[in-house]
């Protein structure tokens, strides 16, 4: 119980809150902004869970590039077209989905929190933000790089190729878009 506890709980609360906002906000631009905030919070959580690489990549890709892409797509649409009519929140209309949502949430929390009791969670000695990663963990982080580039080099390369193809595909789709416009 202390500052760390408060900060972490606050982060988790923010995470869920932004996720809910991203889903529920009627105005798409706001929803996307909220999604970006959620990704940022998630990156911070990754960072304090000793996953700095993942945190940085998450920040760059999900909080950065993808959000830009979302906004670019939104800007190509006619303003007003994408927004729903009526109130900002429309929860009553979504009761059946919401009920299912609560059921799943309860069961999942139940399963996840009971199935992994045996695992000793490593994090949690001190919350020392400037040098967050304790020295004994530093060598283990090297393992991440090691395993990315040595053990799994083939699927990393395949991923790079898949991304390249996806990028080309998106470029082609956007291009055709522009052509049709002309």
């Amino acid at each position: 119980m202390g500052l760390e506890f408060v900060v972490e709980v606050a982060l988790i609360v923010f995470l869920i809150m932004f996720a809910l906002l991203a889903v529920e906000l009627k105005k798409l631009a706001y929803a996307v902004a909220s999604l970006g905030l959620m990704s940022t919070v998630l990156s911070i959580i990754f960072y304090i869970l000793y996953a700095p690489y993942v945190a940085v990549i998450n920040l760059l890709v999900y909080a950065g590039a993808v959000i830009v892409l979302f906004l670019a797509v939104l800007s190509l649409m006619k303003p007003g077209e994408e927004e729903g009519k009526g109130k900002m929140y429309d929860i009553i209309a979504e009761i059946p989905g919401g009920v299912l949502f609560i059921i799943i949430a309860v069961i999942l929390v139940q399963i996840l929190t009971t199935s992994y009791i045996g695992i000793q969670f490593a994090y949690g000695k001190t919350l020392n933000l400037p040098s967050l990663i304790p020295p004994q963990m530093q060598s283990m982080l090297q393992n991440v790089a090691e395993s990315t580039w040595r053990v799994r080099v083939i699927d990393v390369l395949i991923q790079a190729m898949a991304l390249f193809v996806a990028g080309l595909g998106v470029a082609v789709l956007f291009r055709r878009e522009r052509r049709e416009k002309e």
């Binding site: 299912l100 059921i103 799943i104 069961i107 999942l108 139940q110 399963i111």
Partner: peptide
């Protein structure tokens, strides 16, 4: 998914 989760539980 709910069915699978219930099975797991």
């Amino acid at each position: 998914i709910i069915a699978i989760l219930l099975l797991l539980l």
